[in-house]
Design a protein around this nucleic acid. Structure first.
Length: 699
DNA sequence: TCGTCCGCG
């Protein structure tokens, strides 16, 4: 155990040292209840336990009447009748997402068309629809339904449709005026996901155009944040309704001193609170990632052995954790024991853990950003916004009054930005721009609350031009190839791979590979079982590189009869492989619709790599002739240095391949090429001659 | 020799 805390748990005298150390966290009451309203305000999110409710219809009616929104339903209705666009700010538990669509439906405000209620997440769309169907005593898929990727549970009679905003965006490609709906409710607007931001513009333009045609579209934006000025300005100073929430007060504590090392501070805070808090108070701790969670978990277990107080059960929670291990968080524990949940920001909005009384917030988050010049994505730990801090604190007040211990000072808090940087300013834009162009929008004039820099837009338009999707970056007109690309709900580079595949006779393999690459990491490597996980991976490894290795794993997964068991034995993530399998089926169906011939290249895997290169030709790296500084042994097309990621099967391979095709350029401590294959340098000239010429000219 | 936040179609 190389933990820097490990020694504290070993001897009692060192425990004293731990307690009296100057560095220990001092928790003080800096702003106890000074602003109880504010404490609740960014709390939102969906109770995943919603779907487990089983009540009789009378109870449900009574429960609806108790919701804050019920009392003001007539006023809401009146306002919505009056205004074409409005913003509803509702705190957690106000019932806005489940009740307002019902109120609209009961008063037949949707007319002959339907009501769309969008959500950033699939599970939310599904569970909300199930809840509302129960409340309205309807079968799901009748007049209440939902629509998410792989699952359309609606019928022509469906009047209230819960759907992901990604799904509504895809509908906009077919019908930019969204004529199917007379009311569109955009929920969780404060999260500012790329899809929600783009939908704002789509509905705004659709509303304007439909007004001219005498077909009204009502737009209702729902948000948990109180800072609605940005939204209000964007929607031409529309009306705003505020709804009260249903949460309990959360007392906020800040540290008196700045904590230099939050990983150290968090362990100190846990044990200080552990010694002073009743055993039935569960803790929720916000950390940044898998490795950090595993390290802190090991430290807690070590110290707990020597520590007085109730028994501790530590539960890790992050998205990459296999589902069965995630579920442990929701399992009840024996009385007299304390549950400590160590979570990433998955617990901030995506999932709700009941009975949390105490939140410990490190105040940091791991954020991904994109560099338009090198195409590199960066993962780094940054302080989170004030809004995120309130959101985290609110997790302690879901079922009873609680407390939030912030491992940063009140001054530090005050100096933070109010909101996180919207995703649209941080991510590659090619997919979004292609979607917009396919919807008939002009990327130059499309209204966005926060517009990305013209340089970022330009960089992504150039990529779309190079992929053959649009004519020109200055006058982006969709080409036939681009039109075909939008049929596939995947990254434009990958849809280009699929469309090229028949040419290389490898559509069968390309579909599998693109499906796996569109899913999350399929390898699960726990910190303490790394060696064993690496050993079992060997049977899938191909000398050609990571891509063929991924393909080998996917093929074996498809053949395995007991998939869950098989994944466990092979240290693979069953959820992500199943997801890849679903994506493959979806892509396959689209190929059939487009009359594409599904052929296999058999053992001629060079064909597959060339095909991959036809979409990822901008992702080539060449071995450096002369080893210069420590920036890496390869150089990319943009001229930046990088090394093969150590998790790659080509890492440390001798001799190093002269040229590589990489999936991702990731900047962590250094720049790494992630998921790579060896290619012949002359392939680039065969596969993408125009690009190869320009690329050589620039180098 | 690395340690992959969260999501969507």
């Amino acid at each position: 155990m190389d933990s820097k805390y490990a020694s504290y748990g070993k001897a009692k005298d060192k425990r004293n040292n731990f307690d009296t150390k100057a560095k220990r966290v001092k928790l003080s009451i800096d702003n106890k209840n000074n602003n109880p309203q504010k404490e609740n305000k960014h709390v939102n999110g969906l109770d995943t336990e919603i779907s487990h409710y089983k009540e009789n219809p009378d109870d449900i009616k009574e429960m609806r009447k108790l919701l804050p929104v019920y009392a003001v339903r007539h006023r809401i209705l009146e306002e919505i009748r009056k205004h074409d666009t409005m913003i509803i700010v509702g705190e957690t538990g106000s019932g806005k997402t489940t009740q307002i669509p019902q109120i609209l439906h009961e008063h037949r405000l949707e007319d002959t068309a339907a009501i769309a209620v969008t959500q950033p997440r699939r599970v939310a769309a599904i569970t909300l629809a199930l809840r509302v169907a129960t409340e309205m005593s309807a079968d799901i898929g009748s007049f209440v339904g939902y629509c998410v990727r792989f699952e359309d549970v609606t019928s022509p009679k469906t009047k209230v449709i819960y759907l992901t905003d990604g799904m509504l965006l895809r509908e906009a490609i077919m019908d930019p005026l969204l004529m199917k709906y007379s009311i569109i409710v955009l929920d969780e607007a404060h999260e500012r996901t790329v899809n929600t931001d783009v939908l704002f513009g789509i509905v705004k333009l659709a509303q304007k155009e439909r007004k001219l045609r005498g077909s009204k579209l009502k737009v209702i934006v729902m948000s948990a944040t109180m800072d609605v000025d940005t939204f209000r300005n964007y929607f031409d100073n529309c009306a705003v309704i505020y709804l009260e929430g249903r949460t309990y007060p959360v007392t906020i504590y800040h540290t008196k001193l700045k904590q230099e090392d939050y990983q150290y501070a968090v362990v100190c805070a846990i044990f200080q609170l552990h010694a002073s808090t009743p055993a039935d108070h569960d803790f929720l701790v916000f950390l940044t990632g898998q490795e950090e969670i595993e390290t802190v978990m090991a430290n807690i277990k070590q110290i707990a052995k020597e520590s007085p107080g109730p028994q501790i059960r530590v539960c890790p929670l992050y998205a990459g954790l296999p589902a069965n291990k995630q579920l442990v968080v929701w399992k009840p524990i024996p009385p007299g024991m304390r549950k400590i949940v160590l979570a990433t920001n998955i617990a901030e909005a995506s999932v709700t853990i009941p009975k949390i009384k105490c939140v410990i917030d490190t105040g940091v988050v791991k954020e991904r950003s994109w560099c338009r010049v090198t195409g590199a994505e960066r993962l780094h730990v940054v302080p989170c916004s004030q809004a995120a801090c309130w959101q985290r604190a609110g997790r302690a007040g879901r079922t009873a009054p609680g407390a939030a211990y912030r491992l940063y000072t009140a001054a530090d808090f005050a100096a933070r930005p109010q909101h996180n940087t919207p995703e649209i300013l941080r991510c590659p834009l090619a997919a979004t721009l292609l979607m917009l162009i396919a919807t008939g929008m002009d990327p130059g004039t499309f209204p966005l609350i926060d517009a990305p820099s013209p340089d970022s837009v330009q960089a992504s338009l150039i990529l779309l031009k190079e992929l053959g999707a649009i004519e020109n970056e200055n006058n982006p007109k969709l080409k036939a190839l681009g039109k075909k690309m939008t049929a596939f709900p995947i990254d434009p580079k990958y849809s280009r791979v699929i469309i090229s595949a028949p040419e290389y006779g490898c559509l069968d393999e390309a579909l599998s590979l693109v499906a796996v690459m569109s899913s999350e990491n399929i390898f699960h490597t726990p910190l303490h079982k790394r060696e064993e996980a690496l050993k079992v991976k060997q049977k899938f490894v191909s000398p050609l590189g990571d891509h063929v290795t991924l393909l080998n794993v996917f093929k074996a997964f498809c053949k395995a009869p007991l998939k869950k068991q098989w994944c466990k034995e092979n240290y693979l993530n069953h959820r992500n492989l199943s997801y890849a399998s679903d994506i493959r089926a979806q892509l396959f169906a689209i190929c059939q619709r487009l009359n594409m011939e599904v052929t296999s290249c058999g053992t001629d895997l060079d064909q597959l790599l060339k095909c991959l290169l036809s979409g990822l030709f901008t992702n080539c790296a060449w071995a450096r002739g002369i080893v210069t500084s420590g920036t890496g042994r390869y150089v990319t097309a943009s001229g930046s240095g990088a090394s093969i990621h150590p998790a790659s099967v080509l890492h440390l391979k001798r001799p190093p391949p002269p040229a590589l095709l990489y999936t991702e350029l990731l900047q962590t401590k250094r720049a790494y090429l992630v998921t790579v294959s060896a290619i012949q340098p002359h392939w680039l000239h065969q596969v993408a001659p125009d690009y190869a010429r320009r690329c050589r000219a620039n180098r």
